[in-house]
């Protein structure tokens, strides 16, 4: 009964895609997203504008008040803005996923014998292009404004990869909202609601010590603060400490929880 011999399936039929296949499928899906990005380069405007605008604005607004002058503020603010901007960019992933999933082509992806995670993982992987653009521009702006990281170029590169990696992990949270949400705008709304407290209730712009006690407590346990500290350690001192390790563990935990959860919901929803 189950002896189906046909041209396509000369091999034995398996009821699961292997890990190797899953990676291959995800890479093809990432390639698809990149092709689509190339078709609509307009979508990169906000990704490019935000680092330029924020770096200029925050540095000149807070610089004098917090560090006495703009130059001394740069080592504090550039890592802060970097993390804030790149995580902010990962919100777009969820919104775009929602828009993409409403299109007919997702029915085809679902009907193909590919790993279920591929459509999601591929899209999120391609989005690292966005994070890379935001990261590069933020460091570039910092450089133009006179920021010379003491950690050296090598550590700046490590910091960049670290931020891109962590943001990719965090994008799974927004992907989850993207899959759960009804419309793209509701996904955007919920994500922003989470994003703002997460990035502003941190040590991104001001030393935590200047905050009231309860806020200090919040800012200190905020994972984003740990990420920012880790980046400052890397770029300003060239060291990798506890914050670096904690952030990476946090990122791994997020992926471990949200990736399977998101795939599950994605499969459930017709």
């Amino acid at each position: 009964m189950k002896n189906i011999s046909n041209l396509t399936v000369g091999r034995e039929l398996k009821n699961r895609a292997s890990v190797g296949q899953a990676v291959h499928h995800s890479l093809v899906m990432a390639y698809r997203s990149l092709l689509k990005m190339r078709r609509t380069p307009e979508q990169f405007f906000d990704v490019m504008l935000q680092p330029i605008l924020f770096t200029l604005m925050f540095t000149y607004i807070f610089g004098g008040a917090i560090s006495g002058n703009v130059h001394n503020y740069l080592p504090i603010i550039i890592p802060g803005i970097l993390v804030q901007t790149v995580i902010g960019t990962s919100v777009i992933s969820g919104v775009q996923l929602r828009e993409d999933m409403d299109k007919g082509v997702f029915d085809r992806f679902k009907s193909l014998p590919i790993a279920r995670i591929a459509a999601l993982a591929g899209a999120l992987l391609a989005d690292t292009v966005r994070y890379t653009i935001a990261t590069t521009l933020t460091f570039l702006m910092g450089y133009l404004m006179g920021y010379r990281p003491d950690g050296g170029l090598g550590h700046v590169v490590i910091a960049a990869l670290f931020v891109i990696g962590c943001s990719w992990a965090i994008s799974w949270i927004f992907a989850f909202f993207g899959v759960v949400g009804r419309t793209a705008s509701s996904v955007q709304g919920i994500s922003m609601l989470i994003l703002f407290p997460l990035t502003f209730l941190s040590n991104a712009f001001v030393p935590v010590e200047t905050m009231p006690d309860w806020l200090q407590w919040l800012a200190k346990i905020n994972p984003v603060s740990h990420m920012i500290t880790a980046v400052r350690d890397l770029t300003n001192a060239g060291t990798m400490g506890q914050d670096f390790a904690l952030s990476l563990i946090g990122a791994a935990v997020i992926v471990a929880i949200f990736a399977p959860l998101t795939v599950r919901v994605y499969m459930r929803r017709a």
Binding site: V9, L13, N15, R16, T40, G104, V105, F106, D107
Partner: peptide
């Protein structure tokens, strides 16, 4: 072809081609 659509869905997907009521191709490509 004898394979359950729920329990053996991945195998079923290897045996079928689907053309839906609305075109499932990528408009921007």
């Amino acid at each position: 072809f004898g394979y359950d659509v729920v329990k053996e869905s991945h195998i079923v997907r290897q045996l079928i081609g689907v053309t839906g009521q609305y075109a499932s191709v990528d408009e921007s490509l």
